[in-house]
Amino acid sequence: MLSNSIKQTRKGAVVLLTIAPVRATVEAIERLAIEISDACRQIQQDDAVRVLVVIGSGSGFGPDTFPPDGFTSPEQLARLRIAAPVAAVDKPVIAAINGPASGLGFELALACDIRIASAAASFAMPHLAHGLLPWDGGTQRLQRLVGPSRASELLLTGKRLTARQALDIGLVQRVVPASKLKDATEELASKIASYAPIALRYAKEALWKGTDMPLEQALRLEADLALLLHTSADRAEGLEAFLKKRTPKFEGR
């Protein structure tokens, strides 16, 4: 009964988190949220994991939105978040969007750093038509990722974007045939996993946090993170490998 809506597969330094189709009901989502949150906490703490991939099994990517009946306070709604725990992972996260991502599924995709879509993917924020608002970061991450103009359009019209349209507005970074989605994603994930883990985490922090800062403060954040990195063994390894023209071996130290 429990712990069957997600599956973790480990391949080297990459964890693949597969989310099975779940009914969009308060009970099912509350359970899914706990499972995702537990998995993400574990992934966050495991230094051997360098990249997380989130993918849907079956035909869609994550659950649709639904009326959270009886959940009226922010505290209660917070228990129905599946994107928030993914966004809290400070390592690179790739969404492999295998089919329609609507409602919560779309919000889940937005909590990732890089989105790869299969040709079968589509994206929609249908909340308003149901008298709802996104509650899992969708409105905020969408406008930060693709700009307020596109965000207004998607939120207010509920319009469904095809994979191709999502590529055109920069919402996804790549579209591949459905049969190649997993391979293409794993290939990118292992490429990222070959880079320096601390540098990746700092780069992610500088990008997401810097977006909300005045430029001057954001540049200070960047300088502080760059200075901190100067003390890492990986930076020394990166330099040495570059100067000796060999492939670096990063250990996350």
Binding site: S194, Y195, A196, I198, A199, L200, Y202, A203, A206, E222, A223, L225, A226, L229, S232, D234, R235, A236, E237, G238, L239, A241, F242, P248, F250
Partner: peptide, 9 residues
Amino acid sequence: EVGLGMIPA
């Protein structure tokens, strides 16, 4: 940069 253990500065 991340491939060299750094971030842009």
